[in-house]
Design a protein around this nucleic acid. Structure first.
Lengths: 267, 267
DNA sequence: AGGAAATGGTTTGAAGTCAGACCCTTGACG
DNA sequence: CGTCAAGGGTCTGACTTCAAACCATTTCCT
């Protein structure tokens, strides 16, 4: 599988392997359950909050109401939500705080990560590109006062988060907020993907107070640079930030730092 | 869109909108056609090359053979491929170069771009992040001799391309090759997306010889930096390269340079 | 020449998914 | 107190996709 002979423009099987990716990962039902469960775990729907009406939710998730209802039934069976009928009815997040089995939860997360190790490793790589890029663009743009205020306020709520879970939630929100300031919808979406998987990974390991303190310092620097309009600085700090998380995760999840297999069979 | 009041952890509908993404974008058939067509247009399967056997292709694309066959039938009907049976049979790329109606083709492309102006503008933005990032990572990795040779060979075939169409294809291959060297499948996929849309945009405008010469010079510098392992340089040059294309396209396609709407309704 | 192998072509029945219509329950409001 | 609106609950028929088996054609090999 050496390089293509110059000039002949042959079929490049390496490129083909990369471009012809799976067209469709999972079935709709499982993906829906997974996304809803994750959203609840991430606190997008807080405890006691109501999910949007089924019809609406189905439409935003681009899934038939039938499938969505099956997914909700699964969540209900798992005790995550409960539903009530009639006007002002709906599905409410119960999420009786799964305390106690913290370690159990971590074990589950660990198995999840192990199952998708390659994908998650790739997440760390692409994050190194996407998040610094978003920070750069955010710093480059002129921000309204409201945007600046919102950014600062989000930053504050990260550093004042009460516990680990709240911190993780606030952290995700901060990164998404920055991405949003970049003004690129697709970049926001990319960061959302990355943060989702990051969250999965982080719940599989114990996070130390030191790490959080360190991370908070970096957050402040990034926000600072964005507010000052120093794009290069914003990017650099964000890169450092990503590298720190990546190092932490690689170590604790048993991912070698070396680039994924170097032999050509990879691509 | 000010930040959520600290401490109350309410349901954040904004975040919900971002996180509850469509669970499944398109149907398998369309996605398959799209991917194959893209691979052919980008020159991954050169003119006259053979596609992998159906069973194999179906499996790598994670699609049933039925669906794959329907997709191939569509391509065949579009004149992109033709198939032959028997041992050593298979599907071969014909891609009879659509000459003659050059101007007509351009008009079509122009209408296409106008219809999706916002999406295409976003493409230019995200490209500014993704391609430089890929170049950076590629330069950071240790490359095998085969990879180095392949990169140089691809670069050469860009600068020696016979006509505009060939140049465009070779250009796409070069960018994809660089992305591949980054070692991140998802980054490759992102670059492929970007290149496909870029290709659409470029076919909507007349490209001048000057632009091509300029672009070739930049390509050489990027490849140079990657081979030397100078990641920062590789990224910087790639950024310049992206900016040049973006400026050209924004001008000729009538896109203002200003960032997309700044009001908060965006997200 | 004849069989084996590799490839595309076809058929079948099951499972998943969907859109849409309709029903049931309950609270809001006149 | 009755009606309406907003929600969940149910049913149906169609479409998509799948896996697996089998058929047809060509080429390679002995």
């Amino acid at each position: 599988m050496t390089a293509a002979p110059a000039g002949s423009t042959p079929t490049d099987d390496e490129l083909a392997g990369v471009l012809l990716q799976p067209v469709r990962g999972t079935n709709a039902f499982e993906a829906t359950v997974e996304q809803l469960a994750r959203a609840i775990r991430l606190g997008v729907f807080a405890d006691g909050a109501m999910l949007p009406p089924e019809r609406e939710l189905a439409s935003t998730m681009n899934v038939s109401r039938t499938t969505l209802r099956e997914a909700i039934a699964a969540l209900r069976q798992a005790g995550l939500v409960s539903t009530h009928r009639g006007r002002r009815g709906g599905t409410v997040v119960t999420q009786r705080s799964v305390s106690g089995d913290e370690d159990d939860h971590r074990a589950v997360a660990q198995r999840l990560v192990e199952a998708h190790r390659d994908a998650y490793r790739d997440t760390l790589v692409i994050r190194r590109v996407v998040e610094p890029g978003a920070a750069y663009l955010a710093a480059e743009r002129e921000l309204t006062q409201a945007q600046r205020d919102g950014l600062v306020s989000t930053l504050t709520s990260v550093s004042t988060a009460a516990d680990r879970v709240a911190h993780r939630q606030a952290d995700g929100r901060l990164h998404l907020t920055i991405a949003k300031l970049s003004g690129s919808p697709r970049l926001v979406s990319a960061v959302a993907d990355v943060q989702r998987e990051l969250s999965d990974m982080l719940s599989a390991i114990p996070v130390l107070a030191v790490n959080i303190a360190h991370s908070n310092a970096e957050h402040r620097q990034v926000v600072d640079a964005i507010l000052r309009g120093d794009a290069d600085r914003a990017r650099t700090v964000m890169e450092t930030h990503c590298d720190a998380t990546a190092a932490l995760l690689r170590g604790l999840l048993g991912m070698p730092h070396t680039s994924p297999r170097r032999d050509d069979t990879l691509l």
